[in-house]
Amino acid sequence: MLIKCPHCGTRPVEEFTFNGDASIQRPTSNDPATMDQWFDYVYLRDNPKGRFDEYAHHSSGCRAWLVVTRDTQTHEIFNVVTARDYAKKRVAS
């Protein structure tokens, strides 16, 4: 599998380490009433069939965290953006 790092170009999957679902956002509140949100954030993960946004760390390359959008069935990759841009876009939307 090849992943096109926005900084480094196309690299094989062995250069990356993964960190699960990128669509989940870290809660911002420390209010105890938000505990359920925190539980969901820390522990609850879907295992979708099909399109999936996944954190990938280019750990053997430029060390940027990326968000790779791929099909979990076919391994087709639709899009790769930096986690930084992904986070900014999330804030904006």
Partner: peptide, 14 residues
């Protein structure tokens, strides 16, 4: 720790 810092900075607090 280095990976953790990179993750927190880039994904949480860019």
């Amino acid at each position: 720790v280095m990976s953790h810092m990179e993750f927190c900075h880039q994904a949480h607090w860019p």
